[in-house]
């Protein structure tokens, strides 16, 4: 029989050093794992990982890397607006990817924008994951009316497009939160909205796997021992359902980034004063037909590249963790 996830870096005992009695270092374990092997054998995956890593570092170190600070109104020169890429600006500054209508450097804006996009994407995925896993575990393990209730809610939500649900939640939150609160909270409201629109697939996957796992004899053994159901869920079932969840989370990250961009493009996301990639694309969209193509093209390319790379990573992870495809 197949042991779930035995190719993951967590199944450490397969290492020869372990059998000899020495615990191998984490790095040695990773180097020895099937996952690392399949990673190094797939050039597309390596390239995707590098691109994602670059985006991460770029976003993380944006204040140090970016040539200009697009959030600092004092440094903006409105006369520099609409400078084409590599073109000579009014102030004599040179902008690699040009400037937007307010004279903000597009490259710097992309770096700072990726920061917000990645932050929102990550937090939204984390939120959706925690919510989906908890509800999925509960539904799968308890069964009965709890299961029916949770899964019917999930079904209803699944019948609407996720972006619509996010829009709805965002709208409700804006209407209920006090106005003074909104500017600071908008990113968190966005995270909750995207997270709430995305928990269903985690819940469904986890529920399915939980229903399989809970009938396995080791879970029944824990029940006979008298372990608290909560502990059984967390310590026995959860580690064994994490494989598929990890795959969904990776692909979900790309979806969350796109969802954030879509919301921002529609004008309900982050405000133009702290632009994300989606906000940049929307700003540029207004000038696309008047010839200033670079304002929307470069953020758009960045978004495509990021989402595609994350997606390819997710695809690889799905195949690598699937014992039937190896």
């Amino acid at each position: 029989m197949s042991v779930p996830g035995r190719n993951s870096p967590t199944s450490v005992a397969r290492h020869p050093a372990e059998r000899a009695g020495r615990p191998p270092s984490a790095l040695a374990r990773l180097r020895d794992s099937d996952l690392w092997y399949s990673f190094t054998r797939s050039p597309i995956t390596v390239i995707s990982a590098l691109i994602v890593l670059l985006f991460f570092l770029g976003a993380l170190f944006a204040p140090w890397i970016a040539p200009y600070n697009p959030f600092d109104p004092a440094s903006l020169n409105l006369m520099d607006g609409f400078t084409p890429p590599m073109g000579e600006a009014f102030s004599g500054n040179s902008y690699l990817l040009g400037t937007d209508d307010q004279g903000r450097d597009v490259l710097s804006a992309i770096l700072y924008g990726a920061r917000i996009s990645l932050f929102v994407g990550f937090c939204a995925v984390l939120f959706a994951m925690v919510l989906g896993i908890s509800l999925g575990l509960l539904a799968g393990y308890k069964g009965g009316w709890i299961d029916s209730l949770i899964m019917r809610i999930a079904d209803v939500q699944l019948s609407f497009p996720a972006i619509l649900v996010a829009l709805l939640i965002f709208g409700v939150a804006r209407a209920t939160l006090p106005r003074s609160f909104q500017e600071d909270m908008v990113i968190y409201v966005l995270i909750v909205a995207i997270g709430l629109s995305d928990w269903v697939q985690y819940a469904r996957t986890v529920r399915g796997t939980t229903m399989v796992e809970k009938n396995k004899e080791y879970v029944q053994a824990a029940r006979v021992i008298g372990v608290h159901p909560m502990l059984i869920m967390l310590r026995h079932v959860l580690p064994n359902v994490m494989g598929p969840v990890l795959v969904i989370a990776t692909i979900g990250l790309a979806l969350a980034i796109i969802a954030e961009a879509t919301l921002s493009f529609l004008g309900v996301g982050v405000p133009p004063t702290t632009p994300s990639l989606g906000t940049l694309i929307r700003i540029g969209n207004d000038y696309l037909f008047s010839g200033e193509w670079w304002i929307t093209l470069f953020p758009g390319l960045a978004l495509i590249l990021l989402a595609l790379s994350v997606n390819l990573l997710g695809d690889w992870l799905r195949d690598a963790l699937n014992p039937k495809l190896r």
Binding site: G5, S11, Q220, A221
Partner: peptide, 11 residues
Amino acid sequence: FQDPFASLNPR
């Protein structure tokens, strides 16, 4: 239990 491969948590 019957199945010694299923009755012990592999992790």
